[in-house]
């Protein structure tokens, strides 16, 4: 037998293969779309309308609390980001199921570039999450009578980048876990504080210092800030800082997951 040059996939092809897989899986399970937007929608409707009603006696004074917006306007960008952030985070759980059902081995035993594989997977997940985010955005825009197309396009961009960051974070955590049960515990311990400290539901500025400090190391804060900036041109953190914060946190989280995945063995 002659020496044969073994086939090796280009990183691009491996990336494409994993994106393809995530998209096909998503289309095969359409019920997930409904699932992933119901929770944020409930939040928006009950929390949003509830507090709006509570603030009503204040009249226009309420706008002073919420950076010049009414509470629903204040809440909407946060809920959009929350949709994609949560969607991205839970998509990380996928690698845990892959371990459980053996598919992780199928990937690990391929000669493909690990960074390309995991980034392709995260990218594919982020696209499916973007679809969910877009549905949410259109629903909220219709509800609020928001019509600025640039604002909608930019808020989706922010929400998409935010989902990359959260998918990277969720995947990193999932790779360190052995059971889905453990993952759910971490989700609750980590995701809820991150959501509450992101400025999505209440402004960060008046918070006590220790909470404020936590908010500023929370990557989600920058996404929420930017989402509000691109939709309504209001902000409590200078937009340039938010861009830097979002870019840096996303970059770091992606680098961490690539490193983690490259070192993954079955045992």
């Amino acid at each position: 037998m002659a020496e044969r040059e073994a086939l090796r996939p280009s990183p691009f092809k491996a990336f494409y293969a994993m994106t393809y897989r995530q998209l096909v899986r998503f289309l095969a399970a359409k019920s997930r779309i409904v699932n992933s937007i119901v929770f944020p929608l409930i939040w928006f409707v009950f929390f949003g309308i509830g507090w709006s009603a509570a603030f009503k006696p204040l009249g226009p004074m309420a706008r002073m609390i919420f950076e010049g917006l009414n509470y629903l306007e204040f809440l909407a960008p946060g809920v959009i980001v929350m949709t994609t952030f949560m969607g991205g985070f839970t998509s990380g759980l996928g690698v845990l199921w892959d371990r459980e059902f053996g598919y992780l081995k199928e990937i690990l035993v391929a000669p493909a570039s690990r960074p390309a594989v995991i980034l392709g997977r995260i990218f594919g997940d982020s696209l499916t999450v973007l679809i969910q985010g877009a549905i949410m955005t259109f629903l909220l825009a219709a509800f609020l009578g928001y019509t600025n197309p640039v604002g909608i396009a930019l808020v989706l961009l922010v929400a998409w980048i935010s989902s990359l960051a959260s998918a990277a974070l969720g995947t990193t955590i999932a790779l360190s876990m052995r059971s889905p049960e453990g993952f759910h515990m971490i989700v609750n311990l980590l995701m809820l504080p991150m959501l509450f400290l992101s400025g999505a539901f209440f402004p960060i500025k008046p918070l006590p210092d220790w909470m404020k400090a936590l908010a500023y190391i929370n990557p989600l804060t920058y996404s929420v800030e930017l989402a509000r900036t691109v939709m309504y041109n209001v902000y409590s953190i200078p937009p340039l800082y938010s861009v830097a914060g979002l870019a840096a946190s996303t970059g770091i989280l992606l680098a961490v997951v690539v490193r983690k995945y490259s070192k993954t063995y079955i045992a």
Partner: peptide
Amino acid sequence: IGVVFQDPTIDRDLTAWQNMYIHGLIHG
């Protein structure tokens, strides 16, 4: 190498063709 592990390492939500297509791509 080619490997068939003891427990299935397939994606049940995909078709046979899709499973093989992805496998082929990540093997170059």
